[in-house]
């Protein structure tokens, strides 16, 4: 198999705050290949967004990558100088954000913002860059791109803005596209349009996509692999069918049980007790130990390792066997 285009190895990202050091990401590893989609799934405070910002080196001033490496085409970009990073950010690794209104600059036209990127990274002159910007806007399905290119972000609807963001991200043919909750703020019919568009563009350009989301439906629909994050760590990692069909971590399982599904009818939803942990005070042992139905004394004190349960399917739990029994029991009950 070819080398992964992006490989994250044991990433730790810490923030200095008034209350001391906050360890938002505590050892995250994954890899993506060209043309592949990896979903990072997690709830608020799980560290999924911080992971993506670490890869882009867009952390706030008080944040730092404390440990680990981020290998892009084999080269560690976690410590390279900002000037070098600038050639990679946007050109090689691009990102789209949840709320396009805050990610686009309101005082420049959509065209200006795309043209700036193209001129900077691709060395085109203004005229050719404008032509390319119009082409890109057409490609992402914006009607009348010749007119839209001179409009300001506020003149576009939410779905159109997200399309413009995608056009901007794709303007330099990036090898990796990080999408941080790109459809969460959109209506479902518009979400369907954007997801479809991203799939088409991936087929055409062959880029790797890292899709950050909390929506398990979107995960199942879009990705090949998933990394489930909880309390700053990856708790389950593997290919998508294997995770959904044979979950090996109580958190993933609980999450899947607690969402209402359109294609199933349940009398009562199963729910995970307790609340999402605050990154300022993660539990000492396993991050999920205070909410887990399988947790025993050991879980409170020790952090389980991420182990390979099936080929390519990893989980971080001491009691995987017991979970598997539970899952089987409930599957039988369903039938």
């Amino acid at each position: 198999m070819k080398d992964p285009i992006l490989k994250v190895n044991n990433l730790h990202t810490y923030f200095n705050t008034e209350d001391g050091e906050v360890r938002a990401v505590r050892g995250v590893s994954f890899e993506v290949h060209e043309g592949e989609t990896l979903a990072i799934v997690g709830e608020s405070g799980s560290g999924k967004s911080v992971t993506s910002l670490s890869i882009m080196r867009l952390l706030d001033e008080n944040g730092r990558i404390a440990e680990g490496e981020i290998l892009y085409k084999g080269r560690d970009i976690s410590k390279i100088p900002e000037d070098d990073m600038r050639h990679i950010r946007g050109k090689e690794i691009a990102m789209i954000f949840q709320e396009p209104m805050t990610a686009l600059n309101p005082v420049f036209t959509v065209g200006d913002q795309i043209i700036e990127m193209i001129m900077l990274h691709m060395g085109m002159d203004a005229k050719a860059a404008r032509q390319r910007a119009i082409e890109l806007l057409r490609k992402v399905g914006i009607p009348e791109p010749e007119k839209r290119v001179d409009q300001y972000p506020h003149e576009l609807s939410g779905g159109m803005r997200q399309r413009a963001m995608i056009a901007m991200a794709l303007s330099c043919n990036p090898k990796v596209l990080i999408a941080d909750e790109p459809t969460t703020a959109l209506d479902v019919t518009i979400q369907a349009q954007i997801l479809e568009l991203m799939k088409e563009l991936q087929k055409e350009y062959g880029m790797a996509i890292i899709f950050i989301t909390h929506d398990l439906g979107v995960v199942a629909e879009m990705s090949d692999k998933a990394a489930v994050m909880y309390a700053g760590k990856v708790v389950e990692y593997g290919d998508i069918v294997s995770i959904f069909k044979r979950p090996k971590n109580p958190y993933t399982w609980g999450l899947m049980q607690s969402i209402p599904k359109l294609n199933e009818e349940v009398e009562r939803l199963m729910s995970i007790p307790g609340t999402v942990p605050n990154p300022r005070k993660f539990p000492k042992g396993c991050g999920f130990s205070n909410r887990c139905f399988l947790a025993k004394e050991k879980c409170k004190d020790e952090m389980p390792e991420l182990i390979e349960v099936e080929p390519g399917h990893y989980s971080r739990c001491f009691y995987i066997d017991e979970l598997v029994k539970e899952v089987e029991k409930s599957r039988v009950g369903e039938k």
Partner: peptide, 24 residues
């Protein structure tokens, strides 16, 4: 169309999706 637009959390669940054109 609204129902078909909702992603189902099951990677093996295949359905035909109706993509509505344009915005509201």
């Amino acid at each position: 169309a609204l129902m078909s637009a909702i992603p189902i959390p099951d990677p093996e669940y295949k359905k035909k999706r109706i993509i509505l054109q344009g915005d509201v």
